[in-house]
Design a protein around this nucleic acid. Sequence first.
DNA 1: ATAATTGTTTAGATGAACCTAAATTAGTAA
DNA 2: TTACTAATTTAGGTTCATCTAAACAATTAT
Lengths: 221, 221
Amino acid sequence: MNEQELSLTEENYLKIIYKLEMEHKGEVTTNAIADLTNTKAASVSDMLKRLSQKVLVNYIKYQGVTLTPEGRKKALMVIRKHRLWEVFLVDQRGYSLEADHEIAEQLEHIESLQLVDQLEKVLGYPPVDPHGDPIPNAKGEMPNKKQIFLKDMQINQKGQIMGVKDTSPLFLKYLDKIGIGIGTEFEIIDRVEYDQSVELNISGRLTIISKEVAQNLFTIE
Amino acid sequence: MNEQELSLTEENYLKIIYKLEMEHKGEVTTNAIADLTNTKAASVSDMLKRLSQKVLVNYIKYQGVTLTPEGRKKALMVIRKHRLWEVFLVDQRGYSLEADHEIAEQLEHIESLQLVDQLEKVLGYPPVDPHGDPIPNAKGEMPNKKQIFLKDMQINQKGQIMGVKDTSPLFLKYLDKIGIGIGTEFEIIDRVEYDQSVELNISGRLTIISKEVAQNLFTIE
DNA sequence: ATAATTGTTTAGATGAACCTAAATTAGTAA
DNA sequence: TTACTAATTTAGGTTCATCTAAACAATTAT
């Protein structure tokens, strides 16, 4: 009785309400939603009424919306799918395409919990997507992982590259050249006082990265 | 001017018309389409009018439809996506899920030619999907590959397992056990007169499969 | 050839998701 | 407070994809 199928559009609304709720910590306004959905306020009002009827949001006229527990769970499932597909896309093809996000916007609506769970397994249970955003678990709970930049890590700490901040082709090409990518394991060997560059041990080899690079690479926890 | 975006529904109609055209070699009837789309004849008539206006089908009232070249190309692109995703699903997870086809039905509508081309590359340019159906190329042309069952191959011929006919869990489990899967390379060593079983060389090791198994495994060309 | 059957199309409605324009409410400034 | 502005909702329409029921065309059987 719980598992009402949601339309693609409804899923998108929930996802956006979730995001806005996180940002402003509270009620979400009609206009804010209209902006992000590329629709008009009137259309949003319509939809909020419908979502309210399905008990996915708490909606009081003129006062904005919040998600119900059920709505939040649905939103998190969509976000989970989106982020896992993002990992998949980057994994399969590198950061090459600007379009990754757009494609993930479509893939996030593929219905099959099993598929997404299997995807997660194949990808090695990544805690975050390539933007460093945490991936909700199969129960629809958002873990509070945080990204830590190599620049800020202690000497002797180990980790695995989980993503990059700067996604310009120039930077990505350089990373590729020096053999650093998503999943690369490393250990912080030393930090050079002089220029704040960082010495890494990557599978036995010493690799030195500049401060700029160390500011743009992150691991998790 | 050519690249009108099609709705998911329109894509499905084209795909189904293509399939029916292949089967009956000629005009496709309204009712046949209605059956496969799980809609009613009246809805099909409506849609055919719309597709006709977009010059994707040739439609004459009471006389059935055929695809135009443009419509055929669109249909083949959908089929290409569907079959590549099927390969992906089986690749990632084995035949485990009955639901593979349903999931591919959704994935086939993901818009991104680049993604599907990249997928094809990652999968190693498979000529057929796991059901042995050929995969149209990036230009929207259907190659005429045909499946050949191991039962019918000559001694000394080599090949690669491209799919299975029987997809019952029992059979798939057995294949798994004897180490045969999609992509497995083999050479036909001999055929045993007595029971028509087939001796294979699989990466240096002799494997014997029964007539029944050899009737259900195929390669291509 | 005519009648009966089957297949197909039209007419008129529906629901989802959107729109514009007008009305309403909430919040702010005089 | 009252008047004004900005945000929101309602009213009334549109398009897409569907439906049912009725009308119409084509095919088959007598």
